[in-house]
C-alpha cells in the first residue's frame, strides 16, 4: 500500500526510500515500456523485410509514388524536435522554467508541422486513388498516371506496398499525435511551475518516448521513401 510523504519538496511514495530511488524506478519502467514499443514496430519491420525480399520490384515501384523530399523535410523536422525536447529536459534540470516551456512549445509545433506534411501526403495519395491493400483503385491511379504522362502501374499487387506504407506511417503518426498531447500537457504543467530540478520525471519520461518515436521515423524514412 502506498501513501506518500514529502522529501525535499517532492512527493515520494512510501515504498520508495528517497527522491532518487523513485526517479530511477520510474525511468526504468519507462525504458521497459519503450522496449515494448520498439518490439511492436519490430513486427512491422520484419514483415516489411520479408515481403521486400519476395516482391522487390513491386516495392521499388511503390516507393516511386512517395516524394522523398517531403519525407526528408519531415525527418529534419523530427530531428530538430528531438533536440528541443532534450533542451526542455535540460532547462527543467536547471530550473529555467520559461526556457523549458519555450523548448516544449517548439517541440509541439515541430510535431504539428510533421503531421501537416503527412496530411498533405496522404490526401494526395487518396486523390490519385492510392489506398491500402485491396482498396487501391488501380483504374483511377492509371488514369491519373496517363493524364500526367507517366508510365502505368506494372505490379498488380501494388496495394500490398501501400498496405505497409499506411500501416507503418499511420501507426507512427498515431504515436506522434499521442506525443503532441503529452508534450502539450507538460507545457501547461511547466508554465504552472510544476517541475523542479529534483522532480521532472514526466518530462524525462515523455522525452524518452519522443526520442523513440523519432528514432522509428529515422528507420521508416529510408525503408519507405528511399529503398527501391
Amino acid at each position: 500500500m502506498s501513501t506518500s510523504r514529502v522529501i525535499d519538496g517532492v512527493n515520494v511514495q512510501s515504498h520508495y526510500r528517497d527522491v532518487d530511488h523513485q526517479f530511477s524506478s520510474a525511468k526504468q519502467g519507462i525504458w521497459l515500456f519503450m522496449v515494448t514499443e520498439i518490439l511492436m514496430f519490430g513486427g512491422l519491420f520484419v514483415a516489411y523485410a520479408l515481403y521486400h525480399m519476395m516482391y522487390p520490384e513491386m516495392f521499388a515501384e511503390g516507393a516511386r509514388f512517395l516524394d522523398w523530399r517531403l519525407g526528408f523535410v519531415n525527418t529534419l523536422v523530427l530531428i530538430f524536435s528531438s533536440l528541443t525536447m532534450a533542451l526542455g529536459i535540460y532547462y527543467c534540470q536547471l530550473n529555467q522554467t520559461k526556457k523549458a516551456a519555450i523548448a516544449l512549445a517548439v517541440t509541439v509545433v515541430c510535431a504539428g508541422i510533421f503531421m501537416v506534411i503527412k496530411y498533405f501526403e496522404y490526401t494526395h495519395k487518396f486523390h490519385m486513388g492510392i489506398f491500402p491493400g485491396a482498396m487501391l483503385n488501380m483504374e483511377q491511379l492509371n488514369n491519373y498516371l496517363a493524364a500526367a504522362g507517366e508510365p502505368l502501374v506494372k505490379s498488380p499487387n501494388l496495394g500490398l506496398y501501400f498496405g505497409f506504407y499506411f500501416c507503418m506511417s499511420g501507426l507512427h503518426g498515431l504515436h506522434v499525435m499521442i506525443g503532441m498531447g503529452l508534450i502539450t500537457w507538460l507545457f501547461i504543467k511547466t508554465l504552472r511551475g510544476h517541475f523542479k530540478p529534483n522532480y521532472y520525471t514526466p518530462v524525462e519520461g515523455v522525452g524518452i518516448f519522443w526520442h523513440i518515436v523519432d528514432l522509428i521515423w529515422i528507420f521508416l524514412f529510408p525503408l519507405l521513401y528511399l529503398v527501391g
Binding site: A47, Y51, M54, Y55, M58, F131, P132, G133, A134, M135, N157, G159, L160, G163, F164, F166, C167
Partner: peptide
C-alpha cells in the same frame, strides 16, 4: 482496410 499483408489475394 484490407491492407493485404495476410491476404493471399494480394500476394500476402
Amino acid at each position: 482496410l484490407g491492407v493485404g499483408i495476410f491476404d493471399p489475394k494480394l500476394g500476402g
